Structure formats: structure tokens, C-alpha cells
Amino acid sequence: MTGWTADDIPDLGGRRAIVTGANSGIGYHTALQLARHGAAVVLACRSAERGAQALGRLRAAVPGAAVELASLDLADLESVRAFAAAHDGPLDLLVNNAGVMALPHRTTADGFEMQFGTNHLGHFALTGLLLPALRATAAPRVVTVTSGFARVGRLRFDDLQSERRYRKWVAYADSKLANLVFAKELARRYSDVLSVAAHPGYASTNLQQAGPQMAGNAVTDRLAVLGNTLIGQSAAGGALPTLYAAASPDVVTGACYGPRGVFNLRGAPGRVPMGRTADRADLGRRLWETSERLTGVTFAPA
């Protein structure tokens, strides 16, 4: 791979970061490289067992790393509030990475459709609750991980919870568009917070197989394995756009970063276009107001 790599990450000594979903895949490699370059990193994980395993791997890979594990279930707003309340001190970087993809229909602890509730609403609430800690630092960043599927998503405000009809890939695309719209609206509202989106392209992680496995669909599961093998780049490679967005001095607030290779599926990271829909200020404002109402989390005044 040519272009920007993890070796180009600057010294992050003294910076504090939180990475959601850091127990595996892109989240783990994001946390690993942030720690390797000096940041103090909190691995925010839903599974205590998988989180502890990831923490052990990271400490073995980076002896002396300033890393810790904390419990966070983005599908439960009570857990989100407890996590934020337990955070102490300023925060330089929040990486909204965790997510679910193409699951059979499920609902969160608060009754939201699982993909929209976890991927967007959980991270929206988390960001709002941690915003005072972020704004207590000189140059805070929020990186929200979206997907190329955001390009075909829609925000159906008359049916955000897919109650009329649930189509798992449509719901996923819609949730990833919400991630992108949120990142851009956060940038509009807070000039003192650098808010960007990142997407990994096609990265070989267990995310592609989780949905088919939950549905008991062996054919789709095998296709996911084949796609990971033939098309996908490694999880470490898929983490590079997130790391670029989190650490590069060239990042522009409100932009999206992803692989610059063919069809933006793989390759070195850089700024990528994501369509005009996500840039609509009216859409951002409506999603923001709706998300505040649904989560009960109101962001501090700018």
C-alpha cells in the first residue's frame, strides 16, 4: 500500500481517547495504533469477556500502553449514561466506531430498531453526554464511522424505526447515512470541535457475518466469507481511514475520509465524496432535533 499509513500517525502523547467497539476489527486496530503512538485509550466494549481479551492482546502488542477497559452497550441508553457519568477529566478524541450490520429485526433496550438505535442514537447520546469533556480540551475531535452504504440510505422520518416494513440492508444503509449526517451537523453546530466521518471501505471483519449467522442463513454467511477473502482488505487496513480522521493534521471538519482505491473499497485513506444528501443542512437539523427527542439527551449550547 502506498500513501498514508499508520506509521504517519504523529505523536499522541498526552491525548486521551475513547474508542467504541474496540474489542475487535476496525475498533481494535484503531485503539491499538492510537495507543502505540502514545494516546491513553479507553476500550469501550459491550462484552466484558471479549473486551478483556482485546485489552490483553493490546497490552501484549504495546507493553506499557496506557489503556483501560470500560463497559458500554450502545443499545441501552442507561448504559450510555452510566459510561459517560463514569468518565473523568477532559477528552481529546472520541471515535464512534461500534456498530451492527444487517441483523434480523431486533429492538434495543429502549425500543428502537436495533441498527438505527445502536449505530446512530447510541453514539448521538454518547457524544452529547461527553461533549463537555471534549470541549474542555484545546483541539477535540469526534470521528464517526459511517459506510459506503450511506450513499444509498434515506432518512425516513415517518418510519425511522422501520415499523411499517423492515428490510435489514435498507435499515443498515439508513443508519449509516444518519452517522454521516450527524457528523456533518456536529461540525456545523460546534466550531470548536473537529467533527469528521470515516468509512473503512470493504474490510474483512466479523461484522459481515454477524447478521447472516443470527438469521441462520448459511448461504449468505458463505458469501460474506467469500467477499471478505476476495474483496476485503484487512481490518488493520480498514482502520486507516478512521486513524487518518483521528490523527492527521490535514483533516477538515465536516468532511468524510475513506479508502481512495477503486470504488473506495480499499486503499490508502484520503478525503472521499459521499453524495449531496448528507450535506443538506435541513436534514441535519431535523435528524438532530429528532435524536434529542428520542434519546432525551440535549447537547450543551455552542
Rank of each mutant, 00 (worst) to 15 (best):
P212Y: 08
S79E: 01
A85D: 12
A84C: 13
P259R: 07
A66E: 11
A236M: 06
A61W: 02
F182M: 14
A150G: 07
D7H: 10
T298E: 14
L160T: 00
N217Y: 07
M274N: 05
D73W: 00
R286W: 04
R164I: 01
A17D: 06
N96L: 03
A22P: 09
L94K: 09
L74G: 01
N179D: 14
P132E: 08
P259I: 03
T144A: 13
A138W: 07
D159H: 04
E292G: 02
A268F: 12
A235F: 11
V196M: 06
A61Y: 06
A197L: 08
R46C: 07
G148E: 10
A70R: 15
P104L: 00
N179R: 06
G232T: 09
P63I: 11
T242E: 10
V143D: 10
D158R: 03
V219G: 05
K184V: 10
M274H: 09
D174C: 03
H29R: 08
D282N: 10
S291E: 03
V152D: 11
A125I: 00
L194I: 15
R164L: 02
R16G: 04
G99V: 01
A197Y: 08
R285D: 13
I26V: 14
V262I: 15
Q53M: 10
A86G: 15
L74N: 00
A183W: 03
V152S: 15
Q213V: 08
G227D: 05
L226E: 07
N97M: 08
A224S: 15
P269D: 04
A197S: 15
A278Q: 06
D92T: 10
L131P: 02
W169N: 02
A44G: 13
L69K: 06
G275P: 08
A218D: 14
D221V: 01
A31L: 11
G89L: 07
E113C: 00
T127Q: 03
L126F: 06
L194Y: 02
E78Y: 05
D250H: 14
L72C: 09
P104E: 00
G111E: 00
A278P: 03
V62H: 04
Q115C: 05
P273Y: 11
Q233F: 05
R106N: 00
L69N: 09
L134P: 05
G51S: 05
L72F: 09
V41Q: 05
Q208Y: 07
I231T: 12
P200F: 06
A75Y: 02
S195Q: 01
T229Q: 15
A86P: 03
A39S: 12
L32Y: 14
G237I: 03
S71T: 14
V252S: 11
S79C: 01
S195L: 05
R151Q: 14
Y190C: 06
V193M: 05
M101S: 04
R156K: 09
S71L: 13
G99S: 02
A171R: 01
T144M: 08
A268P: 09
T5W: 12
